[in-house]
């Protein structure tokens, strides 16, 4: 988490605030369900903006520092928006042994971004994950909810190209 991201004060829409209220109202014990709340908010907004942390705190009386602590502890949560397609490349043991590092290099080079970054056209964000549970098809990646296995450097470029063409 880079502090640069946090400086940016992003405003979210009235509609989104209503959605957040709706999510908060689903739980009688927001503190005990903080993780579920944050998951629901992230799937609505695609990330957890800093203003939202303050807003949840204001509404639920959970300390802002605690919410921040939870958000930064779990790798699923992000405080910066992501591109349209989230690339999750597996760097688990089976994938590592089968050359996932090279696949990562190829993605970075092809899209000209580093891990955690988003392309200028906002089409892709590239992240690494620990295991997608498809280890026998290693190396594996997920883009959105689609899983791709038995990757090679050529195949990964092909897949990215196909998505680029669609747009």
């Amino acid at each position: 988490m880079c502090c640069e991201d946090l400086k940016e004060e992003i405003e979210i829409s009235e509609e989104q605030y209503l959605k957040i209220d709706e999510i908060l109202n689903m739980y009688q014990d927001p503190e005990g369900n903080l993780i579920s709340i944050l998951q629901k908010i992230q799937s609505e907004l695609n990330y957890i903006p800093k203003v939202v942390i303050s807003y949840i705190s204001e509404k639920t009386k959970i300390y802002e520092s605690k919410i921040f602590g939870v958000v930064t502890f779990y790798s699923q949560f992000r405080m910066a928006p992501i591109g349209e397609n989230l690339i999750m490349l597996c760097q688990g043991t089976a994938c590592h042994v089968n050359g996932s590092e090279k696949i990562g290099e190829t993605i970075k080079e092809y899209l000209n971004i580093d891990v955690g970054e988003t392309t200028d056209d906002n089409l892709f964000t590239y992240t690494n994950v620990a295991c997608l549970g498809c280890c026998s098809l290693a190396p594996v990646m997920m883009i959105g909810d689609k899983t791709y296995g038995n990757l090679t450097t050529d195949k990964v470029k092909e897949i990215l190209k196909t998505i680029q063409k669609k747009n």
Partner: peptide, 23 residues
């Protein structure tokens, strides 16, 4: 309860903390 991506949460006392909404 869906986890949120932390290996240490597989450890049982950490898992309980996570179920309770904590780190």
């Amino acid at each position: 309860k869906a986890g949120a991506g932390a290996f240490v949460c597989g450890e049982e006392t950490a898992l309980i903390a996570s179920l309770e909404g904590e780190r």
